[in-house]
């Protein structure tokens, strides 16, 4: 059903635009004057000097990273689910065995290499969602820079460096995240 919007009837003064224009001019000018007198604050953050870090929300999605558990073991079992789900195909995993002689040798696998191409990654968080082992998380790092394409590929060491240790249950749906 069509909605009929009734146009407001303007008084002569309003039709002349002039009072409205002067009002608008005054609003912008008062902002400028307040800025000059130091009364109002600028809203811009000047990036490298001022940062947003302490205001990042809990759900912020930064660089994806791998984590170890409280015993220092790699959580990732190289199931490659994240590799499949990743929309831009940023993850490349070569699955491998746990070293011979390790106590947990017979329990699981672990990735031989685990690369995330940060030029491709779109920070969607699908990998975190899909991981059955809670091994990959999106952290709050956002300053990912490099001078070559190679530098922008995070290998396993780098991913563990960003990720660090994550304690807690291997339970996908609990609150601890």
């Amino acid at each position: 059903m069509a909605i009929v919007v009734k146009r407001p009837k303007l008084s002569i003064l309003e039709k002349m635009y002039l009072p409205g224009i002067i009002k608008g001019l005054w609003i912008t000018l008062s902002h400028a004057i307040n800025r000059l007198r130091g009364k109002s604050k600028k809203v811009t953050m000047q990036y490298p000097e001022e940062k947003w870090d302490d205001q990042l929300p809990e759900y912020y999605r930064g660089a994806p990273a791998l984590v170890t558990d409280e015993q220092g073991r790699e959580r990732c079992v190289s199931c490659q689910l994240c590799e499949f789900i990743c929309p831009p195909r940023a993850i490349k995993i070569i699955p491998g065995e746990i070293e011979k002689g390790d106590t947990w040798e017979k329990v699981e696998k672990q990735p031989a290499t685990f690369d995330i191409d940060m030029i491709r990654c779109i920070y969607c968080g699908m990998c975190e969602e899909v991981c059955p082992e809670q091994a990959i998380y999106l952290r709050k790092d956002y300053v990912i820079t490099g001078e070559s394409r190679e530098e922008m590929v995070h290998d396993k060491d780098k991913l563990y460096e960003i990720g660090g240790v994550r304690v807690g249950l291997v339970n996908k749906w609990n609150e601890l995240k």
Partner: peptide, 10 residues
């Protein structure tokens, strides 16, 4: 610069 001043920017 002036427009930034008018709009609380830098």
């Amino acid at each position: 610069r002036f427009s930034a001043l008018l709009q609380d920017r830098v």
